[in-house]
Write a protein that binds this DNA or RNA. Structure first.
Lengths: 384, 384
DNA sequence: CGACTAATAC
DNA sequence: GTATTAGTCG
């Protein structure tokens, strides 16, 4: 039985706006740790992974893991019936074929209740590998939106290049070519990417699906990070331990327990890793599960900050500025169509992070108060 | 010859926005009392009735009754050429085939003038019966808009149910079912509907057109109300006297003189009747025709208030809160498509009133400074 | 049958 | 100005 009360329906609404065009149906995997969703886009080119942490809910209860097969179009419709600041309670009986949503206006007598039909969806839960990327670019999400939108008018794809110069987005089109160069903020120093273990193992994949790099070494550094983000997700932790490569085998449920968490750290590390490697508190795990004071839009940064760990965490908070970290020059080409789609998550977080390594799927991630949304997109090879 | 000067072109613009999707052509019936419009929607399911009182104009003159056949799309275009706060003068010669519109910017030298072609329209002026309803729900028009819009996403029709619990709007759809419950504001007390004469005679009709209930007893209570609203419409009053049941016979011109006025009272009674039956001032008629100080959005309530009559008039003014009055449990099903259309009048008034009796067309009415706009919609029978 | 474009509503 | 929807075109 699931009963999850979200303080603001707006969060869910934005999430759905962000993915509904990419995916039509998906399983919301609910378990005691929260709700996750993972799905390939309709054309099977991109992958979306969403996490809503149990701790991010006003009330959360999920007796046992249950997948809720949801048609996102339907859910979008139902969510449109909620005001952004309505409290939203999701309820589902154990073997239910409907999801019950109750919206309670914060200050009124209005109560709206919806029952949405659920469906059985074959969960193609892919293992999402934990990758150490050669480049990380963190920038205002609005900037990212702008760039991909602009360039999408010119051409089909964009070449993203990270070098000492900065990050360049370039697109060639019939009528015009365009290129946007972003230099790192403050001085323009480009640091190294904080690696889990600095072990970057990029294995190229042919089908252009999910990432297949690996590097699954939950050592000190990430252990700590993971702990912070994972909060009371020790169970998950357990599972993660010892996992090494999981992406090759798709259709596993390792997503939630393993890859997901792994991914989580990356997210978390966002700020923490920013200036990288400060051993302190690294092992702090469940203890750090206190809820962040701030929420919603700025929640992601607030949260990270709250942990008060690394050096330049603040820089991530400021919506302005581009942060670039790179270990090696990276140049990849992606379909703009997808990036434009990804960029719709900008409403969830004012910062976006791009993680790249040559020949490896790009990871675009947005972190918000209750969790994150990540997109993976395989690069174009040659001149497809 | 018609010459009517409206203080704000915006009023007309909003009116047209409200009905142009429902009706494409209609006669603006002009007479000394003002301008009325009545039309069935294009699919002949709903009826719109608009009144612009002569007294609501800054200047009004209409020597003799004349119908102005207007293509609403054209008029909309012409009105778009006016700023909302322009003074707008409508002029038409007696047998003219054009309507002349002059826009004068309030504080400038700008004068725009347009001549719009008129057309001959068969006036299907239906008699609109005067009905005593079993339930009256008054709520913020924005709330109504929201609900019907929300539910229209789920299904085709909505069941509106008024009970001691409150008013419930429920819709069943393929993907989801939805239900919105509104409880009455302040305390949640649900009073009785103030009847003209407390004589509720609901005759069922088969064709599902206009209302066919009757109860046309202009006695003390309503006489007073009518007087207030009707203002110097004594002539009309005359006509009304003796009218009893008029809905059965459609295609009469009784609309303006009779039913319309009758309906008007209902509107007016809104606030007045609120707490219901207070004999004081009831007979006050033409004397109360002073213009309200406030205008536009809150005009309706302002106006009513201006009359300063009944007890809880104020409650109607507050945009917040739902007021429910019922004599009997009511449960009706309507096409959401139409209700959504009706709800576009929200820009004219921040309160809307729903009048219902089982098996009788719903009356949705918006009252604004210069008059009102009412919609009638027959309920769905069975599960059409 | 799908995609694209145009119109319209938000 | 954006997003949706309806209609048209391929």
């Amino acid at each position: 039985m699931l009963e999850a009360k979200l303080a603001e329906a707006g969060t869910l609404k934005k999430l759905l706006d962000a993915i509904k065009e990419l995916v039509t149906d998906a399983n919301f995997e609910c378990n005691e740790e929260g709700i996750t969703l993972q799905a390939m886009d309709n054309s099977h080119v991109a992958l979306v992974a969403v996490l809503l942490e149990a701790t991010g809910f006003k009330r959360y209860r999920c007796d046992r893991p249950m997948p809720l097969g949801v048609n996102l179009t339907s859910l979008t419709k139902v969510l449109k019936c909620a005001k952004d600041d309505d409290e939203c309670t999701l309820k589902a009986a154990d073997e239910a074929d409907v999801l019950n949503l109750v919206y309670e206006a914060k200050n009124s007598d209005r109560i709206a209740e919806y029952d949405m039909k659920l469906m059985d969806i074959d969960s193609d839960t892919l293992g999402i590998p934990d990758t150490d990327y050669d480049a990380r670019v963190t920038m205002p999400s609005s900037e990212f939106t702008r760039i991909v939108r602009d360039l999408s008018q010119l051409g089909e794809s964009v070449r993203i290049e990270v070098s000492k110069e900065g990050v360049r987005f370039a697109s060639d089109g019939e009528a015009a070519n365009g290129s946007v160069l972003l230099r790192p903020a403050e001085g323009g120093s480009i640091g190294k990417v904080t690696q889990r273990k600095s072990k970057v193992k990029t294995e190229k994949k042919e089908d252009g699906d999910v990432v297949d790099v690996d590097a699954e070494d939950d050592e000190e550094e990430e252990g700590g990070v993971r702990g912070r983000i994972k909060k009371e997700k020790k169970v998950k932790k357990e599972l993660k331990e010892g996992e090494d490569v999981d992406m090759e085998d798709e259709d596993e449920e390792e997503f939630k327990p393993k890859s997901d968490d792994e991914g989580e750290e990356e997210q978390a590390e966002d700020d923490d890793e920013e200036e990288e490697s400060d051993g302190k508190k690294r092992k702090k795990k469940a203890s750090s599960s206190k809820k962040p004071a701030k929420k919603a839009k700025t929640a992601s940064s607030s949260k990270r900050k709250g942990k008060g760990k690394s050096n330049s965490d603040d820089s991530d908070d400021e919506a302005e500025g581009v942060r670039i970290q790179m270990n090696a020059h990276v140049s990849l080409t992606f379909s703009l169509k997808y990036l434009v789609n990804f960029s719709k998550s900008a409403s969830l977080c004012n910062r976006v992070q791009l993680m790249m390594s040559n020949d490896v799927p790009l990871l675009v991630s947005y972190v918000f108060g209750q969790g994150y949304i990540r997109y993976y997109l395989a690069p174009k090879i040659g001149d497809e």
